[in-house]
Design a protein around this nucleic acid. Sequence first.
DNA 1: ACAGATGATTGAAA
DNA 2: TTTCAATCATCTGT
Length: 469
Amino acid sequence: MMEEQARMMQALSGVTLAGHSVQGGMGLPPPHGHEGTDGDGRKQDIGDILHQIMTITDQSLDEAQAKKHGLNCHRMKPALFSVLCEIKEKTGLSIRGAQEEDPPDPQLMRLDNMLLAEGVSGPEKGGGSAAAAAAAAAAGGGADNSIEHSDYRAKLTQIRQIYHTELEKYEQACNEFTTHVMNLLREQSRTRPISPKEIERMVGIIHRKFSSIQMQLKQSTCEAVMILRSRFLDARRKRRNFSKQATEILNEYFYSHLSNPYPSEEAKEELAKKCSITVSQGVGTTITVSQVSNWFGNKRIRYKKNIGKFQEEANLYAAKTAVTATHAVAAAIQNSQANSPTTPNSGFQMKDEEFQLDSAESKNSLLTNMFTGSSASFNLPNSGDMFMSMQSLNGASYQGAQVGANVQSQGDTIRHAINQTTGYSDRLRHPLYSPHGLNGNGGWHDAPTPTSVTSPNEGPGSVHSDTSN
DNA sequence: ACAGATGATTGAAA
DNA sequence: TTTCAATCATCTGT
């Protein structure tokens, strides 16, 4: 740098002398104390100008502006300009760096791809549509996923927004800075030789600088997305117990569908909705369809493994359902006066119609089997989908279609049970338990122990009379 | 701290 | 694909 300056000085002084002889006087007033017309004095004059140029950066803007204007009008200016041109050509400043091409940065491409895949830098709106759609497709459950991922998507949208604002800001700043520098260079090109190529190069440099900043932004955005993802996955991994109400709802369904505790997709959704509503006090404790599926999966397996352990629970929920059932039965009785009020058949009459079993006879034999030995009406609701029937009777959330679907499968189970009834005598199994469908083959219809509310050891009276709960 | 309960995950099977 | 069965990881009551 110092070397270059020295060379410039040398060259300038040489040319200036030549220029002086050609151009003659006019322009800046001679510096003080140098009235002389000898070469020494002129050299001093030139030296002063050069000094001004060199120190222009040290001055304030206004000062520099004024000085610049003065220099531009200086009689020596054209000479100075041509000299600068010459120097530039010699040093090859204008050519250097012209071939600097920026090859596509693989890391930047990676970042771009990731942001695109995560739906951060993708098309407008539908925040994270790509990722969300992929996730939804992977998990299968549509509505379920929207609940499950709503938090995630909200956060992703936030990141996306920040990313876009920042990107816009950077772009704007880059453009502003570029125009500013271009203007500056254009203005300077009056004083010193600046080729358009150089301006271009300068713009390139600026753009590279800004794109490196952009890359930082992209990188941090990627990091944020990754953190969000891991946190989301962690949250999934972490276990939170369901609320009491939610467990209650699930248990109610389970024990009232003990014969076939496989809720349909619709029923699962319904249950998930119900459970989520009851946990309104908790934040973010919504229960999803897959959670309902998990719950039923766990429940089935654990129930089957140790039915004895669940007896009490079964009785409890049976009693609970019975409260609802008695009301419904009472209502049903009013509808059909044909049967005795104490006969459970009256309550089931409506259900029978829905069942659409092949023959009335099989229905009747089934029902007889179902209720044989049960002296208390509390035992009734526990068998079959009484719960479902009651729900529909009460005008609760279960829709007809769902009931129909359940009834259908229930019908199958029951038909199955009917077929088995003949073999029960040699299987040492009480016919009462047949509707519950647990048989000895390993499936749900294979459970070795009866699943009735009525415990084998306890009489019907063991069903607690505290049905007020 | 401990044991049991419980929601989630995983891989095999149907 | 759903379900089962085993297992993991955490929660909960003691």
